Amino acid sequence: MIEISHVTKRYGSTTVVDDVSLEIPPGGVTSVIGANGAGKSTLLSMVSRLLEADSGRITVDGLDVTTTDSGTLARTLAVLRQENHVAVRLTVRDLVAFGRFPHSGGRLSEADHRAVDEAIDYFELAAFADRPLDRLSGGQRQRAHVAMVLCQGTDYVLLDEPLNNLDMRHSVHIMRRLRTMADELGKTVVMVVHDINFAARYSDRIVAMRDGALVAHGPVDTMLTPGVLRDVYDLDIPVHELHAGPIADFYG
């Protein structure tokens, strides 16, 4: 379980996350939605210890993210940042292998190599495994970064806008694989996503934020409603029920 208790983050006089308390149960997919500037990425960064909270407490599987040693935390949760610039000329295999560092310390064992191969296969990257990242499309590079996160072998996977710069086909592929990671591999997947229909289709739970505050959270069918969407986006958005679940009609 991820427990967030009265967490606040400020930059000067600006509060970007405002006294947020939230529990995310283990297992399944949780999507964090909200307009730009809602505090979504900042909250995820504090959960993953990329940012330090000004007040409050965050635990992951009972581990306080502020005080837990880096090695233990890296074997508990993996994070994909919103921006992933690789300065050196790595291959896909090199990048994915970085995910094993918390386990191998840089000296990969036979088991580590197997984990790298499995992550590459899981995201259908075998044909590009030995290709430099700068010779891949944006979608292929993003899949390689998500494969690295999977290769870390953690129970908790945090992703900040994993669909960045992806076309529809690659977005669907990534979301399907993340859904499968939760269902078949038992991962707890938490991600920031802008497309609320992707969130509705592939998530178990949605967390909605606005202006740094928590607006609402719960199962998809209780969250994807005109009332909640109005509170989050200040728009009147019709919601239709399809065979796969609710869908927001931005053009209605």
Rank of each mutant, 00 (worst) to 15 (best):
G139K: 07
R89L: 07
A35E: 12
D183E: 12
A97C: 06
T42S: 11
P132M: 02
L77K: 09
D134F: 05
G106M: 13
S104E: 07
V189G: 08
A216S: 13
A199M: 04
D94S: 07
E110C: 13
R179D: 13
M191Y: 08
G227P: 10
H170W: 11
L136Y: 05
A87V: 10
M1H: 10
V157R: 04
E83N: 12
L178Y: 10
V239L: 08
E161I: 03
M209F: 02
I237D: 02
D167T: 05
L224W: 03
L77H: 07
D211S: 13
I174C: 08
D155A: 15
D195F: 11
F250Y: 12
D221I: 02
S104H: 10
L229H: 06
T188P: 04
A97S: 15
N197W: 08
D204T: 02
R10T: 12
V192S: 02
Y251W: 14
A53F: 01
L159G: 04
L166S: 01
T154E: 14
D183C: 04
R135M: 14
D231W: 12
R169W: 13
I4G: 06
V7E: 03
V92C: 12
R93Y: 09
Y233E: 10
D155V: 12
T91Y: 05
S31D: 00
E23K: 13
V190W: 02
A144E: 10
T8L: 01
V146P: 08
G212A: 06
H85W: 08
S5D: 15
P102D: 12
V228Y: 00
I2D: 01
V239D: 02
I2P: 00
R169V: 14
A97M: 02
N197C: 05
D69S: 08
T30S: 10
A97V: 06
L229R: 07
R107P: 09
G252T: 10
R81A: 15
G34N: 08
T154W: 13
G153S: 03
F250A: 07
P25H: 07
T91W: 09
S55L: 03
R131I: 06
I206A: 01
A200S: 03
V239C: 05
G39D: 02
D64F: 11
A111H: 15
N36Y: 04
V86Q: 02
L159E: 03
S109Y: 10
Q140E: 15
S137V: 09
T67Q: 06
R141W: 14
A119F: 12
D183K: 11
D117A: 09
V65M: 08
D234G: 08
T72V: 14
I33V: 13
D183S: 11
D19E: 02
G138I: 03
V7H: 05
L77E: 12
D236G: 09
G139M: 04
A182F: 11
L158K: 01
V96Q: 06
R100W: 14
V220S: 00
R179E: 14
V7G: 05
E52R: 15
A199E: 02
T222P: 01
A200I: 05
I206E: 00
